[in-house]
């Protein structure tokens, strides 16, 4: 049982983000791409928040978000995207997939931790 699922194909980002969140007292599990993310989410019903990269091999973050709402019928989990850019088209897809937040990289741990705690409780 973990509270937060961190999905990123970069092991550096995965480690850095999850270590920071663990340090802040949150429980974290990781996935390497969208497909892996969906599997992890299926396996663990305790996940309340998904923090995901956008561009990933196999399945990108937005597709994963759409499948979480569609295939998994999981409307409850909060989804926050880590991104480097932000186009109107992306925002539109994100809105449809119920994406709650956009965090432009580089990630600032201190700015997110309080909100993340609120989202998982």
């Amino acid at each position: 049982m973990a509270q937060i699922l961190v999905v990123d194909d970069s092991s550096t980002v995965r480690t850095e983000v999850s270590e920071f969140l663990k340090g802040a007292g949150l429980s974290v599990t990781v996935a390497v791409d969208g497909k892996d993310g969906l599997d992890k989410l299926r396996a663990d019903s305790g996940i309340k928040l998904v923090v995901s990269d956008v561009n990933m091999p196999n399945m990108d973050g937005l597709t994963m978000a759409e499948k979480i709402r569609g295939e998994l019928r999981n409307a409850a989990v909060n989804i926050v995207m880590l991104t480097t850019e932000n186009s109107p088209a992306m925002k539109e897809r994100g809105k449809a997939a119920g994406i709650k937040g956009w965090i432009v990289k580089p990630f600032n741990g201190d700015a997110v931790v309080a909100t993340f705690k609120k989202l998982v409780n």
């Binding site: 480097t84 932000n86 186009s87 109107p88 956009w102 432009v104 990289k105």
Partner: peptide, 13 residues
């Protein structure tokens, strides 16, 4: 590029 992305990430969100 970061600032450019910030607007979209914040406005109407």
């Amino acid at each position: 590029a970061q600032i450019d992305a910030v607007w979209g990430a914040c406005i109407d969100e």
